[in-house]
Each structure stands twice: as C-alpha cells, then as structure tokens.
C-alpha cells in the first residue's frame, strides 16, 4: 500500500550509499503511516547536517532552518498551532553541539514535540570532525592527536533535565526503532529519541557492527518512571541500554501552560484582535 508520506516519483537523496540515515528514513516513513497521521497537519523541523536533510525526503510540510536552531522554531510552530504534529530531526552536532543551549531550554519548556537525534558520533556533512558524542581517542583531520574531551551523554543529560520521554534506539533494528518512534510521537510532551547510527564514510570506528555489538535492550519489566534508576542506567556504556529509558507523564506541556489556549483552543492564525479592546487600552493612558 502507498504511503502518503513518501513521494510517488523517485527522489534524489544526498546521503552516501550504506548510510544509517536510509534505514532511519524508512522506519520514520512506516511510523508516520502506521500512526495514520494527517499529512497536512504534520511538520518536520530541522537544522543543518546530514540528518537535518531528512525533512526534504518526507512528503510533508517542513521548516529546514539554520544549523543548531531546529528546536526554537519547532517549539514556536507547536505553540502557534497546537493542532500540528511537530517532529524535529537533527544530528548529534546539530542538536547537542551548536544547538546545545536550545536543547537544555526546550527541555525546561516541555513543548509537545518529538526530537529524533541521529547519533553517529561524528560530523558527516563537514567530512569527519569530532562530534560532542565522539568517543575518546578517535583521530580526525582536526582532532589529530585523538579526541580528549569527554563525550556528552545525551541520555544522562536528558534525564537530569527531566525530559518527559527519553529513549535510545539503534537504526539497524527497524521494528524496535519504529515502535519507539511511534511511542515518542504519541507521547504528550517533549520526547527525545537518540538514534545510534553508522556513518560509513567518516566513522570507521563506530561501525554498524560496533553499534550492533555494543547495545542491549532493556528487559520488559524495566520501569522507566523511576528517575534515579533511569539515571543509573543512562551511565552504562558499552554495552549501551536501548529502549525507553525514562518517562515522566506528570509534566504540563508548554502549550498547556499558555494562557492563550485557556479559553480558546484555536490556532493563532484563525484569530482576530479586537480594535475596541485596543482603543480601551489606548484610552487608559489619558
């Protein structure tokens, strides 16, 4: 059966053959279809990077803005029209490096949007420099002596920020990834899915096989609502736990906190300002 989120004609995709972005795209397309999302009410938002090209390859509305700046517009789009499903996509450099500050504060706002971060531990678009998630000792054309900065742990960071849905997946596991993508999109509140992904051209260390060998799935009886134990889990490395690591269903979203929607649920573009009320406000200065 056709997928309304895919293009009828063949499209030109600017990723290297064998890139982990391909299975992520395929999985995302299936997730969108299975959720029966309305195409006209779905918006993909991204910054710049290989991952951030994703919106170009999904048949829906998109806002492909500046490097590192995906989250502020994504937050605003949802806030101005809560009827929309807003999904932000980016790479580890885009979201955790250049956009790090927005990541922290979007966590505080808790908008009802989903964030997929393609985490390949390297800069792909700019040809192989270190990413915030690069592992120690990785040599690159810039980090010629090997990376000595500590890698950023997005899962631990997200849990410390009380992001309401925190998950990690591996792009090679289509079914599990799709299941978590769907859960993340359905989750009310800010949802982060960190997606382990191989970069065939610029990361010869953290390969598809490396990821496959260094991950394990959390057991079915794992309780993601316990923040302290989730934080402990998030510190595990090699093997890294996969699945929904942390979840908090008790947070109010950014949109629900806005007085704008207390009595009127309609999107901002449908509203008109009352000139009579403005005249009253002007006269208040007499």
């Amino acid at each position: 059966m056709d997928n309304i989120f895919d293009f009828k004609d063949k499209i030109d995709i600017a990723w290297c053959p064998g890139c982990g972005d391909f299975p992520i795209r395929k999985t995302l397309l299936s997730a969108l279809k299975e959720l029966k999302l309305i195409k006209e009410k779905t918006v993909l938002v991204s910054g710049i990077g290989q991952a951030a090209k994703m919106p170009q390859y999904i048949n829906t509305s998109f806002f492909n803005g500046l490097h590192g700046r995906g989250l502020p517009p994504a937050t605003a789009i949802k806030a101005c029209n809560p009827d929309l499903t807003v999904i932000a996509v980016g790479g580890d450099g885009d979201m955790y490096g250049e956009g790090g500050n927005h990541f922290l504060h979007t966590a505080r706002r808790n908008p009802d949007i989903t964030l997929f971060v393609h985490d390949n531990m390297v800069y792909g678009l700019t040809k192989g420099q270190a990413a915030p998630t690069s592992r120690p000792e990785m040599k690159t054309p810039v980090q010629v002596f090997g990376v000595f900065e500590k890698p950023l742990n997005p899962i631990a960071l997200a849990i410390s920020l009380d992001i309401s849905f925190v998950a990690r997946v591996f792009c090679g596991d289509i079914e599990q990834t799709k299941d978590i993508m769907k859960k993340a999109i359905l989750h009310k509140g800010f949802a982060l899915v960190d997606i382990f992904q191989n970069c065939v051209s610029f990361n010869k260390i953290n390969t598809f096989k490396w990821f496959k060998d260094k991950v394990y799935y959390l057991p079915d009886d794992y309780d993601p609502s316990d923040r302290a134990s989730a934080f402990k889990k998030s510190l595990e490395e090699e093997p890294f736990p996969l699945g929904v690591i942390y979840k908090n269903d008790h947070l109010i979203t950014f949109e629900d906190n806005l007085s704008t929607y207390k009595n009127d649920k309609s999107a901002l573009y449908k509203r008109n300002v009352s000139f009579k009320k403005i005249e009253e406000e002007i006269k208040a200065f007499i």
Partner: peptide
C-alpha cells in the same frame, strides 16, 4: 537571542 529570532521566524511560519 539566537533562540529568540529563530523562534519568532518559526512563529510566522505557523501563522502568527
């Protein structure tokens, strides 16, 4: 301020 302007542009994009 970087967040400010990107947020405002996102708001216009969505009709505000």
């Amino acid at each position: 301020e970087i967040g400010v302007i990107n947020m405002a542009i996102g708001a216009w994009y969505a009709g505000a």
